[in-house]
């Protein structure tokens, strides 16, 4: 069966893998955003000793190798690791954690830069309005929402395309932790190119579709809110 036939016929195995991939990646993006965006905003608006070093480390972590992240999360979640009692190694939850750790620094570092630039523009106005620190952060995050959406897409894209970390902590277990990227790697090595190409096409289509939707939403919102 060709790659296109698999897609058009709605092959159950293929779409189960796609479904799990979306759940893992969207969950990881959500958790990374919930932690990374406020953290980035906080670093942007706060002055403290060691801030510059923290920014350098955070920026450096944007290039974390996925296999190293996978190894770190593996050690953390393995039976003898500090979080071994959770018993979630080789489960989708472990894959979500690994992807969140991978893209969290990307979201935090880029958010820090966007908010810091916006703060330079808004500082006098918001201080003159006598806004509290919390209100300032909320205002900056809201007014930077279009840039933050692009950051989320960057994080989602990185997580969706990642293979090394989820392979290590998920184990690529058929029907349980097998996602698009790990399946593509496995099926290619087995010579089952139809499924590998089919999944590759679906993966690229999903990323393009989500980016197109985000672009459309951004365009509409900019026309209506400025």
């Amino acid at each position: 069966m060709s790659a296109l036939e698999l897609i058009v016929s709605g092959d159950a195995r293929l779409f189960a893998i796609v479904g799990l991939s979306l759940i893992v990646t969207l969950s990881a993006t959500f958790f990374a955003a919930v932690i990374g965006m406020p953290l980035g905003a906080l670093i942007a608006l706060t002055r403290f000793p060691g801030r510059n070093a923290l920014i350098v480390i955070l920026n450096g972590c944007m290039g974390l190798p996925p296999v190293v992240v996978g190894l770190g999360v593996f050690l953390l979640l393995s039976r003898s690791g500090p979080l071994g009692e959770l018993g979630i190694l080789f489960t989708p939850q472990a894959m979500i954690i690994a992807q969140a750790v991978l893209i969290g620094p990307i979201i935090a570092a880029l958010t820090r830069q966007v908010i810091e630039d916006l703060w330079a523009e808004y500082r006098d106005e918001l201080v003159a309005m006598d806004l509290s620190r919390t209100s300032r952060v909320a205002t900056l995050l809201w007014d930077a929402r279009f840039s933050l959406m692009t950051i989320l897409l960057a994080g989602f894209g990185r997580a969706a395309a990642e293979v090394g970390a989820v392979m290590i902590v998920g184990g690529n277990i058929d029907g349980f932790t097998r996602v698009m990227t790990t399946t593509i790697a496995l099926e290619t090595s087995k010579g089952n190119l139809a499924l590998a190409i089919g999944l590759g096409l679906v993966l690229i289509s999903i990323i393009l579709l989500i980016n197109a939707m985000a672009w459309a939403v951004r365009g509409w919102a900019e026309r209506h809110a400025g």
Partner: peptide, 12 residues
Amino acid sequence: FVFQKPVMLRRT
């Protein structure tokens, strides 16, 4: 305070 180049918030 009204600034020389006021910042318009991204809303209506």
